[in-house]
């Protein structure tokens, strides 16, 4: 079983002319967990990953896998599996031959392409030309390329983009299983909600600089907790809650109470003898913190 090594970014910087696409990024991605690399489109995620993989030359700083730069790895595809956003396929080549090209270049066994296609559920389409693949199938083929050498480190750029709900569930389980085996898994996304159920750690960048890193739960920095509650006699419910000193606003499907715990609101209603038809704690903190970190314009 290949084990993961940490991915280390140290002062990584890329200037395109006067514009800094990535500035002084330093962080470490640990093995054994899934790390989400988040930021709005254009934040510099792809450039960072391309520098990590030796495809783009950094202006300064470095990135390595357990201390070794990608270009210096002895057997790159067996150490790091990467899938980048661009659909890098010759449309006239079959999926099996596409993978065989790179398996041969890396000196992998002849069985590697079929094994990788099997893992991503494309075994039945191995001889079909890639030009006829759907977006979801291309994503899976990109993942098959990443898995080709059974690597201890996975670097995936927007792997969930273009997958159907079933595919999203499948990749979620796959990535979690890979991390549980001790591999290092780094996935990028521009949507927190897309990876929220998959990642343990988050690294968030905006305009090429690191704005937050830590466990997913540390992202929930907002103090505002809200409770959504509903009853048949909604006006009286709102009156009671307001009477207890809460700020209340009306929603289409109930009443929204700021700075409240569901238990307290439930007790208030119980004491007043109002039967509730709905009561839930709102957890909007993650997404809101994310949007605050990356700036509102990034949400678009």
């Amino acid at each position: 079983m290949p084990t993961g090594v940490p991915i280390e970014f140290s002062g990584l910087t890329k200037q395109f002319g006067q514009v800094a696409a990535v500035s002084d990024l330093s962080f470490t991605v640990e093995p054994g967990q899934v790390t989400g690399f988040l930021g709005p489109n254009g934040a510099g995620k792809t450039t960072t990953l391309r520098m990590l993989l030796g495809l783009v030359q950094p202006s300064s700083g470095s990135a390595s896998f357990g201390g070794t730069a990608y270009a210096q790895l002895d057997s790159p595809l067996s150490t790091v599996g990467a899938s980048l956003e661009a659909a890098s396929f010759h449309p006239g080549r079959s999926a099996r031959n596409h993978l065989a090209v790179y398996a041969q270049a890396a000196g992998l066994p002849k069985t590697a392409p079929d094994a990788a296609l099997e893992k991503v559920g494309l075994a039945g389409y191995a001889n079909r030309r890639v030009g006829g693949y759907s977006l979801g199938m291309r994503q899976r083929l990109g993942l098959a390329f990443a898995l080709l050498g059974d690597p201890g480190v996975l670097v995936l750029d927007e792997p969930i983009n273009g997958l159907d709900p079933e595919g999203i569930k499948w990749i979620r389980l796959l990535l979690r299983a890979m991390a549980a085996e001790g591999r290092t898994v780094l996935i990028s996304s521009h949507l927190l909600s897309e990876v929220q159920q998959t990642v343990d750690e988050v690294v968030i960048i905006s305009h090429g600089t690191l704005v937050h890193r830590g466990e997913l739960s540390t992202l929930d920095t907002s103090d505002t907790k809200q409770v959504q509650v509903n009853a048949d006699d909604r006006d009286r419910l709102a009156e009671i809650i307001r009477g207890a000193g809460y700020t209340v606003s009306n929603l289409r499907s109930g009443v929204l109470v700021d700075n409240a715990e569901a238990g307290e609101i439930g007790r208030l209603a119980f004491d007043a003898g109002i039967p509730l038809t709905g009561l839930s704690q709102k957890r909007t903190g993650l997404e809101e913190s994310f949007l605050t970190l990356v700036g509102e314009e990034g949400a678009l």
Partner: peptide, 18 residues
């Protein structure tokens, strides 16, 4: 030129970084 056109230099250089 097809390597440039279809962006297959990415997997090519990943498999053979030199």
């Amino acid at each position: 030129t097809s390597e440039f056109r279809f962006q297959s230099l990415t997997p090519t250089f990943l498999a053979t970084p030199r």
